[in-house]
Nucleic acid binder design. Sequence first.
RNA 1: GCGGGUGUGGCGGAAUUGGCAGACGCACUAGACUUAGGAUCUAGCGGAGUGAUCUGUGCAGGUUCAAGUCCUGUCACCCGCACCA
Length: 801
Amino acid sequence: MKYDFSAVEQKWQKKWEDEGVFHAQDNSDKPKFYGLVEFPYPSGAGMHVGHIKAYSGLEVISRKRRMQGYNVLFPIGFDAYGLPTENYAIKTGIHPRKVTDMNIEKFSSQLKKVGFSFDWTRVVDTTEESYYKWTQWIFLKMFENGLVFRDKTLVNYCPSCKVVLSNEDSQGGKCDICHSDIVQKSKDVWYLRITEYADKLLQGLDKVDYLPNIKLQQVNWIGKSTGAFVNFEIDGTDEKMKIYTTRPDTLFGVTFMVMAPEHPLIDKYADKIGNMDEIEAYRAECAKKTEFERTQLVKDKTGVCIDGFEAINPVNGKKIPIYISDYVMMGYGTGAIMAVPAHDQRDYEFAKKFGIDIIEVIKGGDISVEAYTGDGEMVNSDFLNGFTKKAESIEKMVEVLQEKGVGEKGVQYKMKDWAFNRQRYWGEPIPVVHCEKCGIVPVPYEELPLRLPEVDNFQPGSDGESPLAKIDSFVNCSCPKCGAPAKRETDTMPQWAGSSWYFLRYIDPHNTEAFADMDKLKYWGPIDWYNGGMEHVTRHLIYSRFWHKFLYDIGVVPFDEPYSKRTAQGLILGPDGEKMSKSKGNVVDPNEVVDALGADVLRTYVLFMGDYEKAAPWSESSVKGCKRFIDRIWNLLEIVKDGEDYSKELETSFHKTIKKVSEDIENMKFNTAIATLMTLLNEIYEVGSITKGELKTFVKLLDPFAPHVAEEVWAQLGGEGLLAVAQWPEFDEAKTVDATIEVPVQICGKLRATITIAKDSSAEDAIAAAKADAKVQEFLDGKNIIKEIYVPGKIINIVAK
RNA sequence: GCGGGUGUGGCGGAAUUGGCAGACGCACUAGACUUAGGAUCUAGCGGAGUGAUCUGUGCAGGUUCAAGUCCUGUCACCCGCACCA
């Protein structure tokens, strides 16, 4: 009988939904398991096989957990605010609300077709009022606690999207959405003080189980460095030039200073600077350079010496020239550095180009060739001469600086505060009011949600102004504090806002009194296992940990790290080995695979195609292998015989398989788990029959991967209840090893024979058995045995000359 | 430049962490059943050789009874960050 996958899959999907087997219970004596996958952005293009792979990992684990008796929360939702929807709305004139609803509908039906065991009663949509009300609430709490501020600074601006971007959203100098070059623009921007949490975000990593490369990327992104701040007097003024350095021990080697071109001291003393024209020209030149050009010209240092000012080295009183150069950034440290050309390659290149002295203070390199950044004995350094350990000389120098009152220990982070507003329509309105008298006033909590108003035109203003600014009825309001006429903030929050706390809402999605009930948070938190893409490690993961830690600090969540464990899946590449993209035309549509071959085949294939954590290309023909696998399982019903016990021929294989599949799932080694099931299937066909009990065990092991065919076979065998909640099979360690084993015999490290011995044979017996083998005797003939090795159960090696 | 990772058949990938390299799947070859097959089944399938056997995990050395796995050097590719002071 041919397997009608389409009818079978629909039948069980309906049954699961009708019986609510995947609904998480808020009150349960069972142990809990909260498995989380990154909720999708519902784009118009529909789902991608990459989504299927991303969700299949924890799908398998969640299904296994249910069968192991856990109360499982495995939710799904939609991260629906964002630019693609808005751009689509601009193009078509269809309201983003409508577009979003259509896309969510499309995604939901696709997800259901694959048979994922999500709890559909807990779906969240970040664009719904009942959801974004709480996003705004958290924002106001941050405001209340001083974590929100407004500042006019140079920001990353995408001229194509007409929007300000955070540092995280403009990595590599490219816009994350449209990949245009980012420009720097001076603008009033809302910031979240994420840097205040830099240390907590760093320290929290110690107690969570994230993949090592994920932790490392977070550590690098936060970019903590320790060093010192040093104040250099500027000759002839009361001004001090503050710099940050990680190498205060090289202070005697300073031969010049460098400021960022935008440094405010330049403007302050503009009228006393002799060559202001030259400086202005240089500044203009720098502003023109894109990020790309700046990095391409790394080796070619440029700059201008400030005429009329010199700094004074605080440890030896030497006067040193001050330059401006774009190799010093305003956004890191103090925007100014002390340059030690002998021991910093960038300073070295600058000094060479401008003919500045190079003074060696650490022995060990050849400063006529390049800067020396290694350790060595200190020289030319007064009280530091003779020191050989970096840590000690730094400590001594900081001590001296502190005594003189010209410096102190300091810490710096690469991470910057989070630019939090976007000049766009489709996002959460920032709930504050600008009042002439009172300044910035938060919208009162009881007025939340602050609803997104209707507009006719979603196009952002050409001056980088939000479309909301055009809606007078929205903009004009009265100040909540003094009642005077005031104006609303018209910018919206970035896409990352809603996703920074969605995992908390799943715990209590319909609560109208709070974003989630404390008791429920205590029961479900923290998330036991979170899987998602590597591309979110330096954004979503950092942002959401920050929000969560803040919520913990104000006492509204009971655990301080949201995710106990974090893993990441690898990409599915197109059949051509390239990253899938519409423009390359190599995108595989999961719907087509489900329609042609079935959901079980799709699910099995995305996990079988390779190591879950690595990228692997899609192969049209390999999918068929999984189709055969599913069909062959179905066909087992033709060779099934009565009996609940294991048969003699297959007992060991079953115990081995249960062990291997159980362990592989825990380690996300899904490809080898499926391979093991395939091996067992081959063995069953070799034996020619299978007992009912064996087949039941087989489909239990199969259920997480291919639940539809598994459920159908289970039902045909008369299995009790739904397989989805049947008990996960157990194995007996003692029965995972055959009574007799095959052991390879090597002579001088070369394989010469294979012998069969009892599994617990002694070394003597094993070697004696090996020597009795005709082939072995042939090779040992006329030789002296030097050494005999038996690794129990593994191998015999006889060394002879 | 810094940090991390990966190199194994025609292809995707296995290898209990030092113990039979190539599990499992695809593709391919031969055969069976078919009017036919992009269906199914059987057998074969790293390379060389009729064979016993030899050889083989990017490359060159080394340690070991034994190396894909450990050590030294080297090459290539991928990912992340990037003038971070």
